[in-house]
Amino acid sequence: MDAATFRVLGHRLVDQLADFLESVPRRPVTHNESPSAIRDALDLGGPLPESGMDAGRLLERTAQLLFDHSLLNGHPRFFGYVTAPPAPIGILGDFLAAAVNPNVGAWTLAPAATEIESQTVRWIAELIGYPVDCGGLLVSGGNMANFVCFLAARAAKAGWDVRDCGVAGGSGRPLRVYGSAETHTWIQKAADLGGLGTTSIRWIPTDARLRMDVALLR
């Protein structure tokens, strides 16, 4: 795709997005369609196409399908889940990041993006009263953030080098995890992927206000 075509399609898509964002309050939160209805609308019953579609037509059709068959978490009457509404500046930020497509796995791969990430971590630390000389990184969401912390706790409390010897490489005593009975399902995922197994979790009951019973924990 040459620059001129990209410019035309990009402007057209931004116009579609702006119209969509403006129309969200007038749309239903969801059409409550069945999976089969969604598949029919997306025309997913056919085989792998042998040839592609014109980029302009593809973008326009895909945008309209997403607008018409999605649950709108940016709707003023959407009260479910924790998903934030899309912020226009965030949409443009994603657009910009996708254009550069930085890989922040190493500083040399993405110098500017890595420094932006580091500064963001320092600002967050300052906001919550944490030492600004701390380390940190941005992850994809809450599940992954908890998973990273789970691995850090495993390394800190195991008493041996888990990375080198594995979870069974210590004294023979299995590692245990203690959590409130109300803990989100991220903990089962972390125990599974972290090699401890879900039977390592010790669920601590809660009181009538869903607070962990600390006496039982002790």
Rank of each mutant, 00 (worst) to 15 (best):
K157E: 12
L21T: 05
H75E: 03
A168R: 14
G141F: 08
P102E: 03
A145R: 05
V82Q: 04
G141L: 07
I187N: 00
G90S: 04
R209D: 11
G195W: 05
A215S: 12
M53S: 10
A181Q: 13
I116M: 05
A155S: 15
P35Y: 07
R163S: 06
P131N: 06
P205H: 07
P174I: 07
F78G: 04
Y130S: 04
L216Y: 13
A110K: 06
K157S: 11
T185A: 08
P25R: 06
V104W: 00
T5H: 06
A37K: 03
G136I: 06
P111G: 10
R39G: 07
Q16P: 01
Q188L: 08
R202W: 04
A156L: 14
A112N: 04
I187H: 00
G170H: 09
G93P: 00
V132C: 05
G179Q: 10
T120R: 03
Q119L: 14
G46S: 03
L151Q: 09
L217G: 07
D164A: 15
W160Q: 04
R27K: 10
A168K: 14
L175W: 00
A18N: 12
G46L: 02
I204M: 11
L48H: 05
T198R: 15
A156H: 13
E60L: 07
R26M: 06
D15A: 12
A145E: 02
L96D: 02
E126A: 14
T108L: 12
R209E: 10
D213Y: 02
D164L: 14
L21H: 11
D94C: 08
Y81Q: 08
G172H: 05
V24I: 15
G10E: 12
P25L: 05
W123H: 12
L96F: 05
R163W: 06
G169I: 07
V162Q: 01
R202E: 13
A84F: 03
I187F: 00
P35A: 13
I91M: 12
L13S: 10
I128K: 07
P28T: 10
G129S: 07
G10I: 10
P111R: 10
C165Q: 15
I201V: 15
E50M: 05
A18I: 11
G197R: 03
A112T: 13
Q16T: 02
G142Y: 06
D164S: 15
L72N: 12
I128C: 09
A4T: 14
L66F: 12
S140D: 09
R12E: 11
L217I: 05
N32C: 11
V14N: 05
C134S: 15
T206K: 10
K189F: 13
L65M: 11
G159L: 03
F6Q: 15
F147I: 04
D43Q: 11
G197D: 00
E117I: 08
H11F: 07
Q119P: 00
P49W: 02
Y178A: 12
G52K: 02
A110R: 04
M144R: 06
N103P: 01
D133N: 14
T120S: 09
A18L: 11
T30D: 06
F150T: 09
L59T: 02
S36R: 13
P86D: 05
D164E: 15
G136V: 08
